[in-house]
């Protein structure tokens, strides 16, 4: 890739790209992210739609807030169980609303820590300040 083809004006996400310089030498250039520059709106649209559809499932008592955040944060049940340090079978139970309602404060806190949210956000399935949902200034 030639250096002049590598430049992307995206100060919000800078990165190093290796390119061919004018003198034929290969080396690093600091540039911006192509996909963030061009497709960030699409990412946030999909994110909002996903949150809406998962909220609907919570309202219909199909999933618990644990599953809500597990999907948002792209974790598998196996991975979540290792992170929250609970057996997989227990985590699978907590994906169901009926079992989620019986969770102790300690377990709620453990899930909230993994999801990097407060227990209030967890119980209410409120992404709130969840950085994955909070929309930043558009590049």
């Amino acid at each position: 890739m030639k250096e002049k083809e590598g430049f992307v004006d995206c100060p919000e996400q800078q990165m190093i790209l290796y390119v061919e310089k004018e003198d034929g030498q290969f080396g690093p250039m600091q540039t911006g992210s192509f996909i963030t520059k061009n497709y960030i709106d699409d990412y946030f649209d999909k994110r909002k739609n996903l949150v809406s559809s998962l909220r609907e499932k919570i309202n219909q008592q199909e999933i618990s807030p644990v599953e809500f955040f597990m999907i948002l944060e792209d974790l598998t049940p196996k991975e979540l169980s290792a992170r929250v340090r609970l057996p997989l079978r227990k985590v699978k139970k907590h994906l169901l609303p009926v079992h989620f309602e019986k969770l102790s404060d300690d377990l709620l806190q453990r899930y909230a820590s993994v999801f990097n949210i407060t227990t209030v956000q967890l119980v209410g399935a409120i992404p709130g300040q969840d950085p994955l949902i909070a929309e930043p200034a558009k590049p």
């Binding site: 919000e12 963030t36 960030i40 792209d74 950085p131 909070a134 930043p136």
Partner: peptide
């Protein structure tokens, strides 16, 4: 890290 870049 900006929100859209974050992943576990």
């Amino acid at each position: 890290v900006p929100s859209w870049e974050r992943a576990h």
